[in-house]
Amino acid sequence: MALSYKARRRWALVVLLVGLPLYILAAVVLVSLFQRQSFLVELLIYVGLGVVWAIPLRFVFKGVGQADPDAEQSD
Rank of each mutant, 00 (worst) to 15 (best):
K62R: 14
V64G: 05
V41E: 03
D70S: 13
R36H: 00
V29F: 06
S4V: 11
R58H: 14
G63F: 10
G65V: 10
W53M: 14
S32Q: 06
V41M: 06
V64N: 06
E42S: 01
G19W: 09
R8Y: 03
L20Y: 15
Q37G: 02
K6A: 14
K62A: 14
I55M: 07
Q37M: 06
L17G: 07
L43M: 08
V60F: 05
A67V: 13
L30C: 11
V15N: 09
V41W: 02
V60G: 05
L20R: 04
K6L: 14
G19Q: 05
D70M: 10
Y46Q: 02
S32T: 02
Y5E: 05
P56F: 04
L43H: 08
L40N: 12
L57R: 05
R10P: 10
Y23F: 03
Q66D: 15
R10V: 14
A26C: 07
L57S: 06
V31Y: 01
R8C: 03
L44F: 15
V51Y: 05
I45V: 08
V52L: 10
D68S: 15
E42L: 01
Y5Q: 06
G65Y: 09
Q37F: 02
V31N: 01
L22K: 09
Y23P: 00
I24T: 04
V60C: 08
A67R: 15
R10C: 11
V29S: 03
A67T: 13
F61S: 00
D68A: 14
L40V: 11
V64I: 14
L16H: 13
W53I: 15
Q35F: 04
P21M: 08
G63I: 04
R36V: 00
F34S: 05
V64P: 01
Y46K: 03
F61L: 00
A27D: 06
W53E: 08
V52D: 06
A26I: 03
K6E: 12
S38H: 09
V47R: 03
L22T: 07
V47E: 02
I55G: 04
P69H: 04
V51W: 02
V18N: 09
G50Q: 06
L49M: 14
L30P: 00
V31A: 05
L17N: 12
A27G: 04
Q37A: 07
D70E: 14
V60Q: 10
D68N: 15
F34Y: 12
F59C: 12
V29W: 08
A67Y: 15
W11G: 03
L30G: 07
L49Q: 06
V31H: 01
L25R: 02
W11Q: 07
Q35M: 03
V28D: 03
V60H: 04
G65C: 10
I55D: 05
L17P: 01
L13F: 05
D68G: 14
Q37H: 04
L40W: 13
L13A: 14
A67G: 13
